[in-house]
């Protein structure tokens, strides 16, 4: 059974129908295992330049980047993210919570109030990070923090997503590996890190991107879920799959 499943569609598409841009987009995978080799400074600056030219609402460019290339500082951040996870774990992991039978309704109420922050993916990752089972920055030699200008027009998080995607795709085109690390937002209100990184109003931590040379060859096309598309044309509607 398993073997048969493996034979179906395991081979990435080898035809040359993809143009170079599509290839970069489709073959980019998140990297969670980096070499120690530091990324040259000019290369980091070059990929940040790709981020600078991302589209944004009203061309307001509601982003700002902080680049961290000190191993000690990245490790200290990782330690503090884990510390925050340890503080959240007793509330979320109701199976093992010291709060006993109260934990489950509390956790469910919190999930009800915060459907995105406590979606089951971060929900499961927080206790695992607290126990050190899941990596945070994955040993990346360079960390790019994306800050949000809180006064940005419309939806500044979307603009930061555009900026960051430009950065990760440009990085991938240079053979670098990247991984979005949203959990840095656990340090958003942390006064120690705000001071150490010099983050003041109107900026706040929004996203993190781990950057470095990957171990192995993590790139390649993989299967993903098909999302149904509603298509209106000539007065009719169809759902494309």
């Amino acid at each position: 059974m398993e073997k048969k499943e493996l034979e179906q569609g395991t081979e990435p598409s080898v035809d040359d129908d993809w143009n170079p841009v599509e290839r970069v987009i489709l073959e980019r995978r998140s990297v969670r295992y980096y070499r120690d080799r530091q990324v040259p400074e000019n290369l980091v600056r070059r990929i940040l330049e790709a981020g600078r030219f991302a589209p944004s609402a009203g061309n307001y460019q509601a982003w700002r980047c902080i680049v961290i290339r000190d191993r000690g500082m990245i490790d200290a951040m990782e330690k503090d993210v884990r510390m925050m996870c340890r503080m959240l774990k007793p509330v979320l992991a109701w199976e093992t919570s010291p709060l006993g039978p109260v934990a489950k309704p509390v956790a469910k109420t919190l999930t009800w109030l915060l459907p995105n922050k406590l979606h089951h993916e971060p929900y499961g990752a927080i206790p695992a990070m607290a126990d050190g089972k899941v990596g945070v920055f994955h040993g990346a030699p360079t960390l790019i923090l994306l800050l949000k200008d809180k006064r940005g027009p419309g939806k500044p998080e979307v603009d930061i997503g555009c900026c960051g995607e430009n950065i990760v795709l440009a990085a991938h085109s240079h053979g670098l590996g990247t991984c979005w690390v949203g959990f840095v937002e656990l340090l958003r209100q942390n006064p120690i890190w705000k001071k150490r990184l010099g983050i003041e109003y109107p900026y706040e931590i929004c996203e993190g991107i781990a950057l470095g040379y990957p171990v192995g060859k993590p790139d390649g096309m993989v299967p993903r879920e098909i999302h149904h598309v509603k298509w209106f044309e000539n007065g009719t509607m169809k759902v494309l799959t």
């Binding site: 199976e95 695992a128 089972k133 993590p218 790139d219 390649g220 993989v222």
Partner: peptide, 26 residues
């Protein structure tokens, strides 16, 4: 489960089907 709770039997608990394993496997 990473939270230390149930064992889910037949299924592979907590896989998110990102297929990064497939991409990196030579």
């Amino acid at each position: 489960r990473p939270t230390g709770g149930c064992e889910t039997g037949d299924v592979n608990c907590y896989c998110v089907a990102c297929n990064d394993c497939m991409a990196i496997c030579e």
